[in-house]
């Protein structure tokens, strides 16, 4: 236990330099991006004087190093600046939209894991059978499908033809968000006030977007789980467990899958960034009022501070998730703690 705690503390401290590097990259990328925010705001024909004045106002006339220092200082104070287009703090725009994205990505990841890992394990256990080929085919096909196309198909089939699920937004017209909104995570909010009808509505709205996002990524996990399971099932401790008379199911899933899960978990950490990218597309398809849609809207408007803010938050999420993954890693595999 002491070792575990020491590992977690050390790993958390290591996140600090990682965050620093991430913030620096975001700063640099925004400055390298083509296009000038000031002329974007004022139009190409603004008088020189007005441009200078605007630059001064935004702090863009200062040397890069000073801008960089200011930026770090702001981020350290949880301030991501003010939108250039709307007179609104970037942080408040983000706190409005972030919960929607968190809800979507958590459910997307759940779908990915619940579909990908069991199917991959089952395929490995039934290697070279018809089921195995079928599952592998599904994995490849689903991974090749573009997120937005899958979303459109789901909307058409399950939303329009079958009319099982709503096709857009987080809530239906009969549910008034203002009656329950506290954290912005609607599932928690509705649970807090015991509003079951609203909870049901929120869950129904989540089905298609999270299936869309989750299924596409599940293809990777099917292949990854299957490959790792095949390796693990060849190992001596599996044979030794069989030789002790342990039943097939625990041999394959308790010993096999748990050992195969360690590399899968690593992959999960890496997939968080793909999940975020997928969320941007899914949100657009399903009019999901989250970070992805915010990012897309503000890119069209060249609202640099907001773009920068959203990317910083995405980077923080990825860093945070990789920390979580590493901690779970240590909980599963005792060898990691030393």
């Amino acid at each position: 236990m002491k070792n575990l705690l020491r590992y977690i503390i050390a790993r958390t401290l290591l996140t600090i330099p990682m965050l620093f590097i991430l913030l620096t990259i975001v700063f640099a990328v925004i400055r390298i991006m083509p296009g000038d925010p000031v002329s974007a705001m004022l139009g190409g024909h603004a008088p020189e004087k007005v441009i200078e004045q605007k630059k001064e106002e935004l702090g863009l006339n200062k040397p890069l190093i000073v801008q960089y220092g200011n930026y770090l200082w702001q981020v350290a104070h949880l301030d991501l600046g003010t939108s250039m287009i709307f007179k609104q703090k970037v942080t408040s725009a983000i706190t409005d939209k972030l919960p929607a994205t968190i809800e979507l990505t958590i459910f997307g990841m759940l779908v990915t894991l619940l579909v990908g890992v069991p199917l991959g394990a089952y395929a490995a256990d039934n290697r070279r059978s018809g089921k195995d080929y079928l599952i592998r085919l599904f994995g490849i096909v689903i991974y090749c499908i573009p997120v937005y196309w899958l979303g459109l198909m789901f909307q058409m089939i399950f939303g329009v033809w079958l009319d099982w699920f709503p096709v857009a937004g987080r809530t239906g017209a009969r549910v008034f968000v203002s009656t329950f909104e506290q954290t912005g995570l609607y599932i928690i909010d509705t649970l807090l006030i015991n509003d079951w009808a609203a909870l049901w509505d929120v869950l129904m709205h989540l089905v298609l977007p999270s299936l869309t996002l989750g299924l596409v990524l599940s293809g990777i996990f099917i292949r990854l789980t299957r490959a790792n399971m095949l390796d693990v099932l060849k190992s001596d401790y599996i044979l030794a467990a069989e030789a002790r008379g342990i039943r097939h199911f625990p041999v394959v899933y308790k010993h096999g899958l748990l050992n195969a899960f360690v590399p899968i978990l690593t992959m999960m950490g890496l997939q968080v960034s793909l999940l975020m990218a997928g969320a941007v597309l899914t949100e657009s398809t399903f009019s999901w009022p989250g970070m992805g849609r915010l990012l897309l809207e503000r890119i069209y408007l060249r609202d640099y501070p907001t773009i920068q803010g959203v990317i910083v938050i995405f980077a923080l999420i990825v860093a945070f998730m990789s920390l979580i993954v590493d901690i779970i890693y240590a909980l599963i595999d005792p060898r990691v703690r030393y």
Binding site: S235, Y237, L239, A240, A243, I246, I332, D333, P334, R335
Partner: peptide, 29 residues
């Protein structure tokens, strides 16, 4: 298997599941 006839293998380094304690593996059997 295990109750009447037992088997031990060539490589002791890989014959025990690395994710479970020795006690767990006795217990399971």
């Amino acid at each position: 298997r295990g109750r009447n006839i037992s088997m031990i293998f060539q490589d002791p380094l890989t014959s025990l599941d690395p994710l479970y304690t020795i006690g767990d593996q006795f217990l399971e059997t």
